[in-house]
């Protein structure tokens, strides 16, 4: 097994047995405790200027996503316009964190973003046979290479949940290591790797914690909850467990890893709950688009409508935001 060797402090894993031994040292998740803490943090009330700050921060963290079979170049172009200038009537709204699309549309997105002044907005691609991950390693690597060459600077890969659940964790680890190596090689270390755990299929919080550590040890820059194609997706306790994992990992080994909840976050209230979770679990350092992203599509419109409500003093309507 190849060791990633990202940072000298991160433990080197030389065999599946070592990985297994490492994951055994993790304490199990207190399920009731995690649920209760997530529910308690969800009751925090964020108002007025704090809310306005939270809305703008959330907008800057949105990975504006479209992952439909019916996507077209035209749709990607409008998505890019929205990513750069979410509210056409208000230039004080920040641009979003990234645009997230399927591989074949990466080049179109990159070109469009550069053309309309959004060169600082990265393009994320879902590679490695998204969303199921059921393809041979050869195909997954080719998929990743294709995305990087088309201009993606963030790769969202899925893990092999089947292998993980049947105990074949070495395979899962190796895949992440190999994809990471390919990304580093092709992009000269500039592109990031987000590892999608698909927590809705991992069944237990213990598995979420183990998979989070596995991904972090293998070299993930971000750990992401879900593909958005499986329910449940980014539930609060799952995000809590993942945030605890990145916090502890950073404390122990000095490497800061980002978290990206995706799927089911549709309202401003949901987004603000996520920010509270981040602040109270991982800490303020993670309240940064470099370390926290929210994978969403319809969320952005709700954030914009709430922003208008805060600025104008009355409830806005969907007629005043762009149609996706």
């Amino acid at each position: 097994m190849i060791s990633p060797g990202i940072s000298q402090n991160v433990p080197k894993i030389n065999s599946e047995q070592e990985l297994r031994n490492f994951l055994k040292t993790l304490s199990p998740v207190d399920q009731v405790g995690a649920q209760a803490r997530a529910a308690m943090l969800a009751t925090r009330s964020i108002k007025t200027t704090s809310k306005l700050w939270a809305i703008d921060t959330a907008i800057s963290m949105v990975d504006l996503t479209t992952l439909e079979g019916a996507d077209t170049p035209g749709k990607i172009k409008t998505l890019c316009a929205k990513a750069v200038r979410p509210d056409p009537t208000d230039s004080s709204v920040p641009h979003v964190g990234a645009v997230c699309v399927y591989n074949d549309l990466v080049a179109i997105a990159r070109k469009e973003l550069d053309a309309i002044g959004g060169s600082d907005v990265p393009v994320a691609a879902v590679a490695t046979a998204f969303p199921s991950g059921r393809a041979s390693m050869k195909v997954k690597l080719a998929d990743t290479k294709d995305a990087i060459e088309s201009g993606a600077t963030e790769i969202d890969m899925v893990i092999d949940r089947g292998a993980f659940l049947s105990g074949n964790i070495g395979l899962v680890f190796d895949e992440i290591v190999e994809i990471k190596a390919t990304i580093n090689e092709l992009s000269g270390g500039r592109a990031h790797l987000k590892v999608i755990l698909e927590t809705g299929e991992l069944v237990t919080y213990d598995n979420v914690r183990k998979a989070s550590y596995l991904a972090m040890l293998a070299g993930a820059d971000f750990i992401k909850t879900s593909t958005g194609k499986v329910n449940p997706a980014a539930t609060a306790p799952v995000v809590l467990v993942m945030l605890e994992a990145v916090r502890d990992f950073c404390h122990d080994y000095g490497r800061m890893i980002g978290v990206k909840p995706a799927g089911g976050i549709r309202t401003t209230k949901d987004a603000i709950k996520q920010l509270v979770l981040v602040n109270e679990t991982a800490g303020e350092k993670w309240l940064d688009p470099k370390y926290f992203r929210i994978g969403a599509s319809s969320l952005l419109n709700d954030l914009l409508m709430q922003r208008m409500k805060m600025k104008n003093g009355y409830y806005s309507s969907a007629n005043y935001v762009t149609i996706d």
Binding site: G313, Y314, Y315, S316, S317, A318, N319, Y320
Partner: peptide, 8 residues
């Protein structure tokens, strides 16, 4: 007043 101003 909220009914009057609500845009929806």
């Amino acid at each position: 007043s909220w009914v009057g101003s609500h845009m929806e």
